[in-house]
Design a binder for these strands. Structure first.
Lengths: 307, 307
DNA sequence: CGATTTTCGAAAGAAATATTTCAGACCTGT
DNA sequence: ACAGGTCTGAAATATTTCTTTCGAAAATCG
């Protein structure tokens, strides 16, 4: 019995854009989001009820209730799992330091991230970014703008006309006037969603720009206007959410782009590297110890946390 | 929020014989048997639909759908369990797209990170940062400066006098003149190490500042001058390294700091929050759907310029 | 043993959910 | 620019699911 997740990820089915939105929501927190009503799911995905039903049929079910029945049996199977039984008893993993258990949580969240986004989403974004004829701008909230900055750093190696907007201020909105169909805006907006970012992205979309959104499973309001939405779970047992999975996602996007570079672009990257080398911006520490990845720089002072 | 199981076991409610049959079925394989339709449950218990509804009301719900919603959220909570996530991960190892396998690699790297740093290191850094009498500055390289920025964002919630240096330029070096024993410099330097960052950190150390270094396992030259060095493995099968573990580390540090806040600082954080709330910087999307964590923004290609 | 109360299911009615239809929007290739 | 195609949401329809009503059976009590 194939599980519904596999069906959703099956490339052969060639889901339509609306259908993919549904798939995305479904995968983002699988499978609970499919356990409510069809309309509810439709609303979450921002599509009509009809489309949800059509997807169910396309996947080979008799209708939505049929799909749901399958989902339910999957849930049941998982709840029956011996692992869970074990865990119910043994309350929590051994009491470690705060930092350590935090890192464990992050690792789990990243695992969740993997299954939360269909494979071809990255590909789609990669294409949008690399094929954009106009400008590619990046914007983010109080913390996420740093992620925007990182991605901007990578992207500007691959193409010209990349613009990191940085902190949004009143004058930032002026640049909206130049936005048009050929431009792309990559927005980062994780809860709690920031009014200025939402407003900015909305208006960019209004002017015809293609909006790519990175957000969490609760979906920033920007999702309404986004061409592609990349969802990232980032909840951890801490007052603040973790952005590490989001970083991993943009890096995955970069890996995706790298794998499909054409020759022109590849030359661009090489040129950049050589320019940097010529200006001695970086320094390599020579690896004295043959195969082992551990060099031996002298440690003069202080502590070195080591593997 | 009491769980449904507890309600069913509650003696005070004095269930009638038919109601108890339902309760029994429900508890027998909790909670999946309650996730279908009311009639289905009734049939399994050998009672009428009406009785099922009556039970739901008796338990204090508005009706069967209401009870079901609660059941659903309980399921969701259990499915979030770490161990189950691990299981999912294992079943997913099959060959995937570039982005996906990249994420897997990152996940592994983070696991490595956990064991790469002794537990008390975070604690030590937390103390250095929070007890510093002077200024806490942050500096980083071409990519890592974004991580510095993130950490600066967090830290400035906890103490005054946090300074994110941002991109290093010639004038940046001027501020070195003010560095002294009471100051702390947090430097991020992952390979390939940047000359300017190394120079800056070295001179800060020379002037007596306490240097905390985040670097990779090959150790930035700054390590020689650092009071504490936090090492992060960040190699993945890609031309670029991953910074996700580094982000996880600074967040772990924040978690550590949070756990040991004194009252003064805690009040500072609360004040910041309320100031932000009063100025309506962020927007919460209300959760329309009880059990499920998804909001339901109505999607319309029209624009809702906000705030 | 009968009167009264409680419990319960069948069936009707109400509400919700799912499905189909249809027309317009949006591509795509000529 | 235009024809042919696909995709999609609104609304109408069909279906299922839930709730209420009501009378009969069972239990309880005097």
């Amino acid at each position: 019995m194939t599980d519904v997740r596999a069906l959703l990820l099956d490339q052969k089915l060639a889901l339509t854009p609306s259908e993919e939105r549904i798939a995305q929501i479904l995968l983002a927190d699988y499978p609970t989001s499919g356990l409510g009503t069809a309309s509810n799911l439709a609303k979450k995905a921002g599509v009509s009820d009809a489309t949800v039903v059509r997807l169910a049929v396309k996947l080979g079910f008799d209708g939505f209730p049929d799909l749901q029945k399958r989902l339910l049996s999957e849930v049941e199977a998982r709840l029956q799992s011996p692992l869970l039984m074990m865990e119910t008893k043994r309350s929590n993993v051994a009491a470690q330091g705060i930092a350590e258990s935090y890192l464990h949580a992050v690792s789990e969240t990243i695992d969740k991230t993997i299954s939360a986004t269909p494979a071809n989403t990255y590909d789609k974004v990669a294409r949008i970014v690399m094929e954009a004829k106009g400008r590619v701008s990046l914007v983010g909230g109080r913390f996420s703008r740093h992620i925007a900055g990182m991605l901007a750093g990578y992207l500007s190696q691959f193409r010209a006309n990349v613009h990191d907007i940085g902190t949004l201020a009143a004058p930032s909105f002026d640049i909206l006037v130049d936005y048009g169909k050929r431009d792309v805006l990559i927005a980062f907006d994780y809860r709690r969603y920031q009014n200025d970012v939402v407003a900015f992205a909305s208006q960019a979309a209004e002017r015809g720009a293609t909006v790519v959104l990175f957000t969490d499973q609760w979906l920033s309001p920007i999702a309404e206007h986004a061409e592609v939405t990349i969802i990232c779970p980032l909840e951890v047992p801490s007052p603040y959410d973790t952005l590490a999975p989001a970083v991993a996602q943009i890096e995955a996007l970069v890996a995706q782009i790298l794998s499909s570079l054409d020759d022109t672009t590849r030359r661009r990257v090489e040129n950049l590297e050589s320019i940097r080398a010529r200006n001695a911006v970086t320094v390599d520490v020579e690896d004295s110890s043959g195969s082992s990845p551990q060099p031996g720089p002298k440690r003069k002072k202080g502590i070195t946390a080591d593997a």
